[in-house]
Design a protein around this nucleic acid. Structure first.
Lengths: 121, 121
DNA sequence: CTGAATCCAATCGGATACTG
DNA sequence: CAGTATCCGATTGGATTCAG
């Protein structure tokens, strides 16, 4: 996605856009999905994403999710630092959406085993 | 969303990304949702989107959806031209996802009547 | 370990004008 | 009606380096 700031602006009545907003961005959907399972630290998340995401992007996406109220960021005053990311209640409310996405994606991948080799090699 | 070409490339096992691909783009989700209801002509769709989308973008999104196999484009040899857009079976399989999105978006808008004024004025 | 800062190419997406 | 063509600012997202 990609828009001026899609901070949930939305034409009156356009629920789809509102729902798309928080999961828009290259990694947000996946991040939210993983957080559904448990709280993660920064680089646990990065590993979960198969390290295909750069720090810069992961930080950015997490910040946006935080700002949107979907994710909570808890910083521990330690050295070395530790930051936990977890879903807020709001974020957790996305569960049905994320499950629907996961389900469709799983089926789709089963139907199209060819179109996703790229990273498999 | 927004990526090099996210042609459904996806890390092995990442269903979420696969599912996000077809609905990524500023208007795709909404377009698909509308097509769920019925077949639409080009500018019927544009009106459905409250004319907030430019021709250029609508064309582009539709082309991508077509290429992804989600939407079928039927051209009638007429003057003036007529082009019908409808969901393919593949596209229709997204229905549960779209409904989940719609549902969440509707709830969200009810919870946050403030954050969506922008276009309402 | 969890970032922030900088640089940069590519893409996105709007505005506008034109066409069969 | 359903596009195409062009221009252009804004955003995306990767790579790399630095820091507390």
């Amino acid at each position: 996605m990609v828009m001026k700031k899609r901070n949930f602006e939305c034409a009156p009545g356009c629920s789809i856009e509102a729902a798309l907003a928080p999961i828009d961005g290259k990694w947000k959907g996946v991040i939210l999905f993983h957080l559904l399972e448990k709280t993660y630290r920064f680089n646990e998340l990065q590993r979960k994403l198969n390290s295909r995401v750069t720090q810069r992007m992961l930080v950015k996406q997490l910040r946006e999710l935080e700002e949107a109220g979907m994710v909570e960021r808890k910083v521990y005053a330690q050295v070395p630092p530790r930051v936990d990311y977890s879903l807020t209640e709001e974020g957790r409310s996305l569960e049905p959406v994320l499950r629907a996405l996961w389900s469709w994606g799983t089926d789709w991948m089963a139907r199209n085993p060819d179109k996703q080799a790229k990273t498999a090699a």
